[in-house]
Amino acid sequence: MSQPIIQMKNIEKHFGSVIALNGVSVDIHAGECHCLLGDNGAGKSTFIKTMSGVHKPTRGEILFEGKPLNFSRPRDAIEAGIATVYQDLAMIPLMSVSRNFFMGNEPIKKFGPFKLFDHHHANEVTMEEMERMGIHLRGPDQAVGTLSGGERQTVAIARAVHFGAKVLILDEPTSALGVRQTANVLATIDKVRKMGIAVVFITHNVRHALAVGDRFTVLNRGKTFGTATRGEVTPEELQDMMAGGKELATLEGILHGTV
């Protein structure tokens, strides 16, 4: 495989006396969907926030395209091409889809000495990009609040892709969605991966991960059990690793193996 786009080496992150991450190493390659699995409190959020520039690692090294990286704010990560889509913080419901799409990156049209928001261009691009992701909007001025949860995630993904993301981090994009919407988002992830973008897909749902993932890294109590490639690992093994094995086996006994 080619050189990884992001290498996280022995990342440690301490919050006071709490050790959130204790030496995690992951490589992310362009065009792959890398699933980051873990139960609540495993350190998934801390890990992606370190990757996207929100947190600075206490120890360890991040290499982006082979060069060491030091983000001081989220904007640096965005400019470098690392985009994060947060589950509930992606969109502003009262604003139109096209205003949301270009939020922070508004296209400008010169009108004499004045710089005006180019709504015409914004609307056109928004409709185009949403079509590419398979979502047919009623109109670019439709408020985001009228979209379903899955559609909102898709707008956020389309936005990140349009603005040149090389790495797309998705924070539990499917956890609050229904069956059909989940399928839509997973299909979108597949499309993005085929465009050659590295996708980091955070989830605690093994079935969602196996549906689109190329490689899988399981986090448990701030540590990783290493990375498995598609086909090398069974859903049961992933599930066990996430839960720390033993306790879940006992639970599964009680629940007759349905978890």
Binding site: P74, R75, L89, I92, M95, I108
Partner: peptide
């Protein structure tokens, strides 16, 4: 009116009031 509806800054005004955290995450 022009500032609010026709400029980049206007979009930031809407975004800041709509959801300050979401706006910050995309660089507003």
């Amino acid at each position: 009116h022009i500032l609010l509806t026709r400029t980049r800054f206007g979009n930031w005004i809407f975004a800041s009031g709509g959801d300050a955290r979401a706006a910050t995450y995309v660089g507003v």
